[in-house]
Amino acid sequence: MPQPSLVTRDLTVRFGGHVAVDRVSCAFTPGELTAIVGPNGAGKTTYFNLISGQIRATSGRVELMGRDITGLAPSARTEAGLGRAFQLTNLFPRLTVLENVRLVVQARERRGFNLWSMAMGHRDLIAEAEAVLERVRLTHLADQTVSALSHGDQRKLEVAAMIALKPKVFMFDEPTAGMSVEEAPVILDLIAMIKADPEATVLLVEHKMDVIRSLADRIIVLHNGALVADGKPAEVMASEVVQEAYLGKELTDV
C-alpha cells in the first residue's frame, strides 16, 4: 500500500452556527481516483476550499506528503504540490489562452520574481505551454482571449492549466458542469489520462453517476458536511446511506 499523499484529520469549518464541513478525516493515495459525492450544499466545494487554502479551517489539519499545510496560503499549497480546478470557471479572462497556461508553467518553475528578463525570452516556458495546449487540442485557439471562448473550451483550458501545473494531487470540482453532452467526454478523457499516471492522486467532485462509474476507484460521500460513506464504487452506490442522502431524507443511523 503506497503512502497517502493527502490526509485530512478532523477537518472542520463553521460559518456562524452552521458546520459546513464536519470533522472529515480521510486519506488519499497516489494512483487512485476518488470521487466525492453528496447532494447540493453537502460541503464538497467547501471541503476542497479547506484543502487548497481558500478558506481557513476552524479546526483539524491538512497534510500533504506528510507535511502539515493547514496554516499555509493557497499559493504555498500549490507550490507544495496541490492543484485545484474550480467549480465556477476561474481563469484570466482578458489574457490569451496561451498566456493563461504560460503563467501556470511560469509559476511552477518559480520564475515570477524575474524582474529584468523578458517574459517572451523564456522560450522554454512558452514551448511547454504550447505543448500542453496541443495535448488538450486547443492549439488553434492559443492567441484568442479567454473571454471569447465557449464555456466548454474554457473548462478545457482549466484542465489544461492543471496539466501544466503538474501537481501531486489533482482536485477537480465538477469539471463538466454546464457542458454539453458532446463536450463532456473530452474532459473526462483528459482526466482519465491524468489518472493513468500512477503517481497522481485525483479527487473528483461529480454528480453524474455514469462518470463516476467509469472513472472512480473509490467513492466518499459527504452529507451535511460529514463523511458518511467511503468505499468501492459498487458498494457505496448500493448502500442505503447514499440512496437516502441523494433522496434528501433524514439520515437516521449514522
Binding site: 493557497p74 476561474n90 482578458r94 489574457l95 503563467l103 511552477r108
Partner: peptide, 21 residues
Amino acid sequence: SPFGRVLQAIRENAFRAEAIG
C-alpha cells in the same frame, strides 16, 4: 518581464493568481 506578467495576472484575477502559486 515575467514579474510584469504576474502583475497583469493579479490585476485580472488575484484569486486565480494565488491559486496557481
